[in-house]
Design a binder for these strands. Structure first.
Lengths: 201, 201
DNA sequence: GTCTATATTGAGATAGAC
DNA sequence: GTCTATCTCAATATAGAC
């Protein structure tokens, strides 16, 4: 019982910094730039030493996704139980950093089975949460669930966030500011309609 | 005037096959798998020989995107002038192959400036076309352009396509079949409303 | 004009030193 | 338990043969 007594602080701190660095690289240079050398250099380590903390690069990617998805699940749960669920959800779905990283993970998972499996688990859990909440609250928003079923609403929220952030971060001139502003107004209007009918709460 | 008289067929045919192979690899193994070796092997060439046809890998990526985007612009123009523009547009936006490739280009452009510039040009041209048409036809669909401006409608079409195809190709269990079916019904309903009011044509 | 032999760099990973 | 010296392989690219 004395082996794991040693202070883990140093190692855990290093792991955290490695994950931070990897995330930064992935965000600004793409997932293909997340290499042993690149990440190690940014944290002041050597490339082989990085393999001490993460045996394979796959392990590193999965660890990155795990840490991110924990936060996402937490924040999505909080958003969905907040007084204005759609508003909070949209803020999350259109968050530039989170969404840009999501696009990278999406592409990286295409040729990394371990990552794809992990992505599947997260996607399923998050979508489940969203649809459970939508089942209950869509009627309160005066939305006909036959015309706009939860699955469609959820996919639209995510997809619109993806499209906007993709254009924004790449700097494409596609009137994304107008689209973002219009969506924001739309969400506010819908929330107001519900608040008026079902009280603030 | 006799230099370019030689038959280009052989070379052009090879270039075409190289682009086909590269596209196939990008689709199934991700953009990072598009390497000289991989592509060359699939076409029965050697890696260095591939550099005879495309000096740099950047050149190859840009050529791939150019060829694809020509088709996209053509098909989108045809869709937007068809009798049921929204329907035709949605068929394009939710096409699995085209959209999956688009996601890869999106991620690849993140760290390839030449590719990013080309992506920007295409995105801008396509969005411009879409918004010009929407300006005219949204009223015919009985859609309030103040609540759903062209920029928002266009981004939503693209985004929903992205989200659906991403889940479909990765095999995520996120009720994407329901979402796709609901969107298809919705588009049909909207088209019918317009046809009834403005005649078939 | 078309293709091959070869250079150079950097990737992921391991055996073994401290 | 932590880190370093080193291996292998694959990537892009070029010089130069045919």
């Amino acid at each position: 019982m004395t082996q794991p007594r040693r202070r883990r602080a140093a190692t855990e701190e290093k792991v955290r910094r490695v994950l931070d660095a990897a995330e930064e690289i992935m965000l600004h240079e793409g997932y293909a730039a997340v290499t042993s050398r690149n990440v190690a250099e940014r944290v002041g380590l050597t490339a082989p030493l990085l393999h001490y903390y993460f045996s394979t690069i796959d392990d590193l990617f999965v660890a990155m996704l795990r840490r991110r998805s924990e936060r996402i699940v937490e924040r999505m749960a909080a958003a969905l139980t907040s007084p204005r669920p759609l508003r909070a959800w949209w803020d999350l779905a259109s968050d530039p950093r989170g969404t840009a990283l999501f696009i990278e993970f999406l592409a990286a998972a295409n040729h990394r089975p371990a990552l794809r499996a992990e992505m599947g688990r997260v996607a399923r859990e998050v979508r489940r949460m969203q649809m459970d909440v939508l089942d209950k609250i869509l009627p309160e928003y005066d939305v006909d669930p036959d015309e706009f079923p939860p699955a469609l609403v959820a996919a639209t929220m995510q997809g619109l966030g993806l499209a906007l952030v993709a254009d924004e971060t790449a700097g494409h001139e596609t009137a994304h500011e107008q689209a973002r502003a219009a969506m924001s107004r739309l969400v506010d209007r819908i929330e107001q309609r519900r608040t008026r009918q079902h009280g603030a709460g």
